[in-house]
Amino acid sequence: MTVQDPRAEQTIALSVRQPAPGATVLAVSGEVDMVSAPTLRDALVNGIGDGGTFVVDMTGVTFLGSAGLAVLVEAARLAQRENAALKVVATARAVTRPLEATGLGEVFSLHDSVDSALG
């Protein structure tokens, strides 16, 4: 699923796979800003509702704004309520920097690869 931001011609691309029973990986790429964040939110809410381990792979993210951070915070809350394990793969500077700058790095379970998140 690809959502086009008509203003900046930027896109967010989301793809979902289930590498094992009870485990879901949502790969996100592109810019997560106020235009694309609602799409990410829908995908997270739908996926986390199923319980189990939910990995958000943000390796391909080139920008993570406060709207995207808010979506992750909401997802973390939801995961807690649904007894799901939310894990975030953050290696790109565009993702690690805002997480550090906002102090939100300590809120999420951060990993440097999908394998380590699933392990």
């Binding site: 915070v73 550090e100 700058a101 906002t102 102090g103 939100l104 809120v107």
Partner: peptide, 10 residues
């Protein structure tokens, strides 16, 4: 300094 989390998170 260690940056604290935003308000409304923890």
């Amino acid at each position: 300094s260690k940056i604290g989390v935003p308000l409304g998170v923890l």
